[in-house]
């Protein structure tokens, strides 16, 4: 009985913060989604008009949702596989391990502004490093950021370049694997690959689960690269939902409409996250 109250005490800091700093902005934005609000004049109640307009008058709403969906479907699984694989490799005790770790982690700490600028240059179709190297190999590289097909994938590549951030989390997770389990597996005569599959990966699942959930939430709010580098173009091929929402809120000055967009996204992401949580019991292994 006493332990129950203790639990509340432990989560109290977040709960208080939630009520004081988050709840009010949240409720306000729900309200705003039912209003016409240009940020400056007082909000006017319009009922469901924003939601109705989104589904009937807005050519870009569906388009941006689709772009974002596609991004989540590709970027999240690819990111997890790459992150786990990299962490597994970096967990092997080899010469120069710390140098490698630092090297692969580095891209995720370069400030976004610099990353964007660097990529605009090296992905340049004519004078960029990537196409220059491809040319030496006899391949004519695409017009990366300027091509309606490749721009989207350029942003995915860029995201992959920053995979070091999740790699660090996996590495920390790998350090949690108790030695006894390896010893047991070794006694069974398992080779390194077997050990990875049978011991390491299952024990890594709580961290993979974390990255999956954060990946889904993050992918649906993807914004930076599209905002700085492609501005939604060419031909709307990188018009991500969050970018379009930002334009609606701050550029086209329609905060009520953007709030409606945000809550649709919220419902979608929470639904998806809920699904992911529901599968948790099947594949995520927590310590005994």
């Amino acid at each position: 009985m006493k332990r129950r109250r203790v639990g509340w005490l432990f989560v109290a800091p977040w709960l208080v913060g939630f009520v004081v700093f988050t709840l009010y902005p949240f409720l306000t934005s729900v309200y705003l989604s039912f209003t016409r609000y240009d940020v400056v004049s007082p909000a006017k109640w319009v009922g469901l008009a924003n939601y109705r307009a989104l589904f009937t008058d807005d050519d870009l709403f569906g388009k941006s949702l689709l772009v974002t969906f596609k991004y989540a479907c590709i970027a999240v699984p690819v990111g997890i596989v790459a992150g786990v694989a990299l962490a597994l490799l970096l967990n092997v005790d080899i010469k120069g391990q710390s140098v490698f770790r630092t090297l692969f982690f580095l891209p995720s700490i370069v400030p976004g502004v610099a990353t964007a600028t660097v990529f605009v240059w090296i992905l340049n179709p004519e004078i960029g490093l990537v196409n220059g190297l491809l040319k030496n190999a006899g391949v004519i590289g695409p017009n990366w950021l300027g091509d309606s097909f490749w721009a989207f994938y350029s942003l995915i590549f860029m995201g992959l370049w920053g995979v070091g951030g999740s790699m660090v989390i996996y590495l920390a997770g790998l350090k949690d694997v108790p030695v006894q389990l390896y010893e047991a597996a070794l006694l069974d005569g398992a080779g390194p690959w077997e050990r990875t599959r049978r011991v390491t990966l299952p024990l890594l699942t709580p961290v993979i689960f974390f990255n999956l959930v954060m990946g889904v939430i993050g992918a649906f709010q993807y914004f930076d690269g599209a905002f700085i580098m492609t501005r939604g173009g060419p031909e709307d091929s990188t018009l991500f939902y969050a970018l379009y929402m930002f334009y609606r809120a701050w550029r086209y000055m329609d905060m009520g409409y953007a709030s409606a967009m945000a809550w649709i996204l919220f419902a979608l992401v929470v639904g998806l996250t809920g699904l992911v949580f529901a599968t948790q019991r099947r594949w995520v292994h927590y310590g005994a």
């Binding site: 807005d58 870009l60 309606s148």
Partner: peptide, 29 residues
Amino acid sequence: RGTLAPREALRRFEQEVAHEIRRRKELGY
């Protein structure tokens, strides 16, 4: 980029703006 003929591109542009005007009207701007 050769995706749409100029006439078609212009027609779509007009339509997108018309939708935006209708949207704003419905919201009472």
